[in-house]
Nucleic acid binder design. Sequence first.
DNA 1: AGCACGCCGACT
DNA 2: GTCGGCGTGCTC
Length: 726
Amino acid sequence: MAIISVALPIPKRQLFDYLYEGAALPVGVRVRVSFGPRKLIGVVWGVSEKLDWDISKLKSIEMVIDDTPIFNPTLIKLCNWLAQYYKHPIGDVVQTAIPVALRKGESSLAKPMQYLTLSDVGHSADINSLSRAPKQRSLVASLRNQDIIKSKAKADFGAAAIKSLVEKDLIVPIEKASSTASTWQQDLIIQDKPMANVEQAIAISCIESKLDQYGCFLLDGITGSGKTEVYLQAIEQVLKQGKQVLILVPEIGLTPQTVHRFKYRFGIDVGILHSGLNNNERLQVWQQSANAQLGIIIGTRSAIFTPMLKPGLLIVDEEHDSSYKQQDGLRYHARDLAVIRAREENIPLVLGSATPALETLNNALAGKYHHLKLNERAGNASLATQHVFDIRQQPLQFGVALGMLERMGQHLQQGSQVMLFINRRGYAPALVCHQCGFVEHCKRCEKPFTVHKQLFKLQCHHCGSAKSIPKSCQQCQSNELTSMGVGTEQLEQGLADYFPQYSSIRIDSDSARGKNKLDNMLNSINNNEHQILIGTQILSKGHHFPNVTLVLILDVDGALFSADYRAAEHLAQLITQLAGRAGRAEKPGEMWLQTHDPGHPLLQDLINNGYAHFAQYALLERQHAHLPPYTFQALFKAQALSARDAFDFLQQIAQLFSAASGVDCVGPIPALMEKRQGQYRMQLLLQSPQRSSLQKAIGQQIKQIETLKLGNKIRWSLDIDPQDFS
DNA sequence: AGCACGCCGACT
DNA sequence: GTCGGCGTGCTC
């Protein structure tokens, strides 16, 4: 008889004890228990030390789901670290770390694989009788060599071919237990690889010399310097040793082209984890990685939890990307977790970026990471030259200065493409009454509605609520309603009128909604079907436009004077990324930034001296202002229908920390978005020059905070290392 | 998180 | 007299 501590999916920072008839259960095994009036699936997380509990009150474990733990020792340590560092309930952490199918109690054992094989008839049939059905014919021919996995056959030969062959009794589907032996190593072939240049070669050999131990490498390479080639050659060595590689990419970076590059180079299957997969497909990749049946696993943020039997290398591509930070529930940063994991697995980690996050750069400068630089551009890559355009007192048309329209005309006339970047969807960011100045506001968020002319709607970009565009002013009944400001829709329309001889295309989350729509648009651009490209953030991620020779950023001032201290860093990353996306060697591009403050030191530094120089300067600024990465922050957020409740709750927390040494308390103050979806939002910022002081103070108070009565009345959360203060 | 228990308003 | 509103509190 043993007392087992179980992690349950309950938002409480504790384990729950149960009796077990056997001797003991290993940590990481799922169990089914009764919890109050309901049944829950939990994970064994230890043996209870508290024997003072009245044993007669303990319930028994009702069922043990797994024969062997679904968490390996590394994952167990990672979960404990997460719960500890992010002060998050362990049951919730454990839940986050496993695929949904496993949370629901699905078997963690690999399901038998569906194969296709030839029937007796199929073996003896004359293959030429199928000459009028080439797909069927080649499938039968392939099956004469070996059985084929059904899903693979579907992809290669089509479902129709399989169906008709089954109907003709030539082939039959069978099930085979998927082998536990790793199969990819036999398939491993190395395609011809390009010669690495000097910088690449240094980076590669530096990583390769430390493959069997922990080490963090910042691969700091400008766009087009061939970071991927460095990844590929490092991966090659790891795969040759029979070890696995886990690659994290940003949410939009996981395109078929990216995957193909890895597949093609090594000739092996690549496990892919992205948001489009269903629960079973996810589980499949999870299992295969856990059994070392996959050599390469690529995925977005949550892929960092994928277990590996033979871990060899971790890569975080575009490590500065903000999509690595989870913004709800367990608010972990996948890049930071990757560092912890690499250390735990004792394997190297490569962080790659052309525009490293200031946090990462600081670690590299402090000597914690090996700083590998790639400053040479390989092949026909080129960086656009950067300039500011002073728009003070300049006439603007749909947000574009006349001087810029002229320049656009020159580039277009030469047969080039131009790209305009504006970070605002819709037609205009507000609808205003020309008579009385009244602006239509969303009642739930108290922010102006965005005008969407194409949809005939006013839309709130903060909560998604919408209504039709009114004909007259709510306040004075005048029908002189005009829009204020410029969005992508208006810009597109304006440019189409101004340059009627050229075709323009708008790329934002409105126009790119739908499967493959973005891919199709990008293809049509590179086929020169459009000359004027208008878009938002989407344009800056991962796509190259060789025919674009002019990039225009319409509004950089918002970021320069933002209340968010990270806005300048993000703007610099955006500008640098965009500059790397346009032009090529024989057709170099230029980039213009429209601003009311052309002398702004950050802007000037960035365009004259480049991102690396800017980053050093920005770091210095952060240091003087006592901001991260030189101080450490934690943010309590509260939202409620009553601002009072949210405030009072945070006030009580602030009081708990008033005596904490070395921790500063800012607030409670309203969030940058004071109201959202009808809820008032307040926040309390804790800050300390020592990470340990902050950790300790929160650790001491969190149990107390959890029991605050007001906490049940409102929604609250704790964000360690917050990225987003909205 | 869920679910039950509990104590006050409008209904067959 | 009951059905059900959601505040409070507990779950090994």
